[in-house]
Design a binder for these strands. Structure first.
Length: 423
RNA sequence: GGAGAGAUGGCAGAGUGGUCGAAUGCGGCGGUCUUGAAAACCGUUGUACCGCGAGGUACCGGGGGUUCGAAUCCCUCUCUCUCCGCCA
């Protein structure tokens, strides 16, 4: 969430920039400022009374100690009223604070200046592309290829779990594992430290990265223990740094993680979400960085560059989009999406999303740093990106590399798969 | 799942109703000494909020209560450890 200081000091700027996200913040900001001011004055009152109470209590203690019991009892009588006022004001204070927080979490992150105006996907701006779109005739879509070569079984998944939970089999499973290992190895080579996090997180973690309180419905909730299945490794990995004060010299922190990801995603199930295009459970390798505010945008560029090397090595046609205000997420300040071209579906598939959250998550996480020798703490910046999400990569690889003989495996993956063609 | 013990500052660990934001040790930082380092010695060392400032307030796992006053007493939740059971 945004800091109160920022909102108070740059109110008009916040309203203006949130318009790019198509969010009218005028009212909510007025309310936040009103509540914050109320909070401050109530707090001042409470603290004055508490100070009074503290000194009175000390006096009573002294009186008892010196045996002046009567005096002490007299003084005691005075505290009752004070106590009541403190209690009353204290209740008001916590009520105001709760209301303030409720408003604050509803305010999205302000977008960076680079974020273009726009309503939705169609207004995203292509910033770069590469690779070659293969020319295939009668290309078979991946949902048919996986049946033909017996790589993934959706019906079996439906039988044991439900729709959107595929079962990978034989070379399909092996290819999946190859991609995971390839992505992890590449990330480690690029300086990211690998972590293998829990796939289930608590409420605090969900709040820290911004999934809770509002996007509850998108996660699977283990109600018996009040835990959530992670929608992305971003959640557990970023939360490793919750309530942490770093030294400036420790940044940037670079972590990567493979995880299964779980999404309830109550969307439609038409042609565009067929096969591997949208699943309830899928695999992903995520890269996460905690960076100094002064260079977090350079870090973002590096992360984008890293993802680019992946799609290039996989020989997939790719393009990078800068998300417009209407398509960028609630918590992000700037996001680049990677898409790869899927030759049989004849459309671009999103396979990565790389974002700078600036201090928006850090403020929720209480993730701070100190400059060398400085006493005051400042909020760090957090970033993350998919590197990469597997299912659509798999879809594109299968569709783009289909030949008369079978499905050709890109060279970089052969050491991982142990085969160079699926027949 | 059953029984017991516990949760205090970066770490270890004292404190069982007032003078305790909290002893002491270690670690960190600064200094003295030294050509430099080590050792020794001296000093310093939590976070947040309010306030221009002086200063004030809160925090001893979380929440609630008792009391003029709570790290300390009571209730409750969470977590950790030990033993037993079960188990990949």
């Amino acid at each position: 969430m945004l800091t109160l200081k920022f909102i108070q000091e740059q109110k008009d700027e916040v309203i203006k920039r949130l318009k790019v996200k198509r969010f009218d913040a005028t009212e909510i900001i007025e309310e936040i400022i009103r509540l914050d001011n109320e909070r401050k004055s109530t707090q001042a009152q409470v603290e004055t009374l508490q100070a009074e109470m503290n000194s009175l209590s000390k006096e009573i203690g002294q009186l008892f100690k010196s045996g002046q019991v009567e005096e002490a009892n007299k003084a005691k009588a005075k505290t009752g009223e004070l106590k009541d006022s403190i209690k009353e004001l204290d209740n008001k204070l916590s009520e105001t604070t709760t209301q303030l927080n409720n408003q604050l979490v509803q305010l999205p992150n302000v977008p960076n200046e680079l974020v273009p105006e726009g309503k939705g996907e169609e207004d995203n701006v292509e910033v770069k592309n590469g690779g070659k779109i293969p020319e295939l005739h009668n290309a078979v879509p991946h949902w048919d290829l996986i049946k033909q070569y017996d790589l993934i079984d959706f019906e079996l998944g439906t039988k044991i779990t439900g729709a959107g939970f595929p079962v990978y089999k034989g070379k399909g499973a092996r290819l999946q594992r190859a991609l995971i290992n390839f992505f992890l190895d590449e990330a480690v080579k690029a300086g990211y430290m690998e972590v293998l996090p829990p796939l289930v997180v608590n409420e605090d973690s969900g709040f820290g990265t911004g999934q809770l309180p509002d996007k509850e419905g998108q996660m699977y909730h283990v109600t018996a223990d009040n835990l959530y299945l992670i929608p992305t490794a971003e959640v557990p990995v970023t939360n490793l740094y919750r309530d942490v004060i770093l030294k400036a010299s420790e940044m940037p922190i670079k972590n990567c993680a493979y995880s299964a990801c779980f999404r309830r995603e109550a969307g439609s199930w038409g042609a565009h979400v067929r096969g591997l295009n949208r699943l309830h459970q899928f695999d992903k390798v995520e890269i996460v960085q905690v960076a100094h505010p002064s260079n977090s945008y350079e870090v973002l560029e590096q992360m984008v560059a890293h993802v680019q090397t992946l799609v290039e090595k996989l020989e997939l046609p790719w393009r990078i989009l800068r998300l417009c205000g209407g398509d960028i997420s609630f918590t992000s300040a700037l996001t680049y999406d990677f898409e790869v071209y899927s030759a049989a579906q004849e459309r671009w598939l999103e396979v990565s999303s790389v974002s700078n959250f600036e201090s928006y998550q850090a403020n929720r996480l209480k993730l701070r740093y100190k400059e060398d020798g400085e006493k005051k703490t400042q909020l760090a910046h957090t970033l993350n990106g998919s590197a990469l999400a597997l299912p659509r990569i798999m879809a594109a690889l299968l569709e783009n590399n289909q030949t008369e003989e079978g499905i050709r495996i890109p060279e970089v993956l052969v050491p991982y798969t142990g085969f160079d063609i699926i027949k």
